[in-house]
Amino acid sequence: MNIVVCVKQVPDTEALIKVKADGSGIDEGGIKWVMNPYDEFGVEEALKLKEKNGGDVTIVSVGPARALETIRTALAMGAEKGIHINDPALEGADAYTTASALAAAIKEIPHDIVFCGMRAIDDDAGQVGSILAELLGIPQVTVVTKLEVADGKATAVKAIEGAQLVIETSLPCVITAAKGLNEPRYASLPGIMKAKKKPVDVKDAAALGISVAAKAKIVKMMPPPERAPGKIVGGEEAAEKAAQLVKLLREEAKVI
């Protein structure tokens, strides 16, 4: 079974995000870069499938030079090889362009299942997996919390509002991973050492033959609006505080 996992390097969830004064983007100084947590679920699921069914796991990532660390992280977890799509023209690429780059790279290699994270925690768009599936012409199941692969088809569980859907799809397909799919493994030290020697192909947009024109452009970034300071509800007894709060919520905030 040939499995491809798309990963993205993103700022750590705890990182301080400072918007540049000119609104052109965020200040990357001091940011700790990590693998997008949802992509980690994808890597883990791919490795589990490989361990069960045999085959290869290939990691594909679009990103600048530093993204190689993230590919190595996935290789340390146990993937076989990496494809690093690194092109300055792809910096800040929109979802369609990113998916095009990924699709171009993945089309060239055998793929029974392609994993993506359900969204990247930097742009929070959650589009790439679906666009990629469309560009590869294969079905998708997004936001998957459970997956079984057998007899040439995949059965995935997806949580929707108020219910769990069990969806069956033919292979190849794109699965976007959600929290709950698995617990990503901690890379072993020999894994980390071996990862340094595993092959990673570097490709640019020209090599992939894709257009880099963005269709959705960020024109300006800004920090979130400040919240007005709140008030502490006083009172002696718990009952008094609770009554006071309910009154405020009903009369001042009008939310209940």
Binding site: P11, T13, I17, V19, I26, Y96, I121, D122, D123, D124, A214, K215, A216, K217, I218, V219, K220, M221, M222, P223, P224, P225
Partner: peptide
């Protein structure tokens, strides 16, 4: 973006 740590104005061209 960044789970609300920043906001972006996006122009859609397509």
């Amino acid at each position: 973006m960044y789970a609300g740590k920043a906001f972006a104005e996006v122009e859609v061209d397509g």
